[in-house]
């Protein structure tokens, strides 16, 4: 009985953390190139409503994910054009993108407010899913959760093993030197921002189509901001980002259970807990100056102007 509850909490934790995994890994790549995109919340919302509508119209998850990604990419392209081509300030542009995303997603989603979708059952893997306990822990998730783990592995490999990842890290560290070596700083940063947009889009789709599954205005509810915080406090390392995302998911689920047990703590306070707990834990584990120095992209947030080289 007890083990059953724990299992339920564990499985639900993974699901609750997954939107953050996507958004934060995307933002990680963006920031590693030296661009700070504060528009994650907005990109997730637009991704969420696009995916939701696609799902409601066609019922195809693949199509929904593709629509969410495309929407996220479109949003990130606006941002990239502003900060990379027009050299606008990154912080101000990112904030504007979020506000824009909140507004436009609410506008597009008027007709879908509080519409619920049929849930998508988790993958049923023959034999494996039926193993007691182990089947439940490892093989009871939906496809996007498995994909997020593939993505994580890919990103670790990309950043630390591939030449392209090395170039990305180098550009984030010192764009001037990168330019002197002959890399297209602006081009690489465009790609990184677009990747971040696509991932934020998937994160939104996961939230609206698989996790909830319904559309409510502003339903991302600060997860975009938490993703940005995750990246920073995880000192730009993918594994720590994931750990932070699941920590957030875990506290979210546990506070649901606490509310369910009828313990007399105001629910508003409980809803605040996941955000608070994630930030506090991450601040504590990221105090080491050396790891910050080694992993943070030194040029983060500064506009790079090739002509002044």
């Amino acid at each position: 009985m007890n083990i059953d509850i724990l299992l339920n909490i564990f499985v639900a934790t993974i699901a609750a953390g997954t939107p953050l995994v996507y958004a934060a890994l995307g933002e990680l790549i963006t920031e590693k190139s030296g661009v700070l995109n504060l528009g994650v919340e907005g990109m997730m919302l637009v991704g969420a409503i696009s995916g939701f509508i696609a799902m409601a119209k066609t019922g195809s998850l693949v199509f929904a994910v593709l629509c969410g990604m495309a929407a996220g990419i479109l949003m990130s392209l606006i941002f990239a054009f502003l900060v990379l081509t027009l050299m606008a300030n990154q912080v101000a542009s990112g904030l504007a993108l979020t506000i824009f995303g909140i507004g436009i997603s609410a506008f597009i989603g008027i007709d879908y407010t509080s519409v619920a979708l049929k849930g998508i059952p988790p993958l049923n893997i023959p034999f494996l899913s039926d193993i007691p306990f182990i089947g439940r822990i490892f093989f009871s998730y939906d496809i996007l959760i498995y994909l997020s783990l593939v993505l994580l592995t890919g990103i670790i490999f990309f950043l630390y093993k591939s030449r392209a990842g090395l170039i990305l890290r180098a550009i984030g560290e010192n764009p001037k030197s990168g330019h002197a070596l002959g890399f297209s700083v602006i081009g690489i940063r465009y790609l990184a921002v677009i990747f971040g947009g696509a991932m934020a889009g998937i994160g939104g789709v996961y939230l609206a189509v698989l996790y909830t599954p319904m559309w409510v205005e502003g339903m991302v509810a600060g997860r975009g901001w938490i993703s940005i915080a995750l990246v920073v406090f995880a000192t730009w390392r993918p594994l720590r980002v994931i750990a932070g995302a699941y920590l957030f998911g875990g506290v979210t689920i546990i506070q649901f259970h606490i509310q369910g047990f009828g313990i007399e703590i105001s629910s508003q306070f409980l809803c605040m807990l996941p955000y608070l707990a994630t930030i506090i834990v991450l601040v504590i584990i990221s105090r080491n100056k050396n790891t910050i120095r080694l992993n943070s992209p030194a040029s983060l947030g500064t506009t790079y102007h090739p002509a002044t080289n």
Partner: peptide
């Protein structure tokens, strides 16, 4: 002025 990347 060296064009090296310090954290690599």
């Amino acid at each position: 002025h060296f064009s090296l990347f310090e954290t690599l």
